[in-house]
Amino acid sequence: MSLIEGEKEHILACVKEVLGENTKTRENLIPLLQQVQHKLGYLPSLAMEKIAEGVNVPTVDIYGLATFYNQFRMNPPGKHQVKVCLGTACYMVGGDITLESFERRMEIKEGETSPDRLFSLERVACVGCCTLAPVVVVDDKVEGKVTPTRVDGIMLALNEENGKAAAEQKPDQSEGDDNGHS
């Protein structure tokens, strides 16, 4: 993935800040990656290389960690992140159907981000709210008893919010800025 202008500087500054605030040891590697991802939303290659340099571990080992743990992502997340719980209790009452409903509505598959970067969809193992199954986490807010109809409601609310945000932004933006996705 190529970086857009200014992004590179932002990544470098962020990694520098995190490395400056923490002890640079292998033991601290996962917390470092967590902090960088928390700031950037994902782990760009450049950040992984810089962390490897700072902590003095092979880059391939950082890549190994980033691809091993569920939490780390190597692509930017969507503006709205939806996580569908597929723990036992949720699965038994149709968590998979809920996930499919989101996939249909967002027109992406689980693990993907929509081309306009508005939505990303993930499955999670269990958020521990089993009594409210099926559960969905929408931008860190837990929603219980999410039926396919409720999925429509959630999407409606998110789209409305996006619409509002877009409407507020529009006056400042030139037409060419529109990311250009079909």
Partner: peptide, 19 residues
Amino acid sequence: AWIFGFANRGIDRVVTTFN
């Protein structure tokens, strides 16, 4: 040389290089 390493998890596990 520290070029090779394991990456991914489970059935997707591979021996690979950075990125």
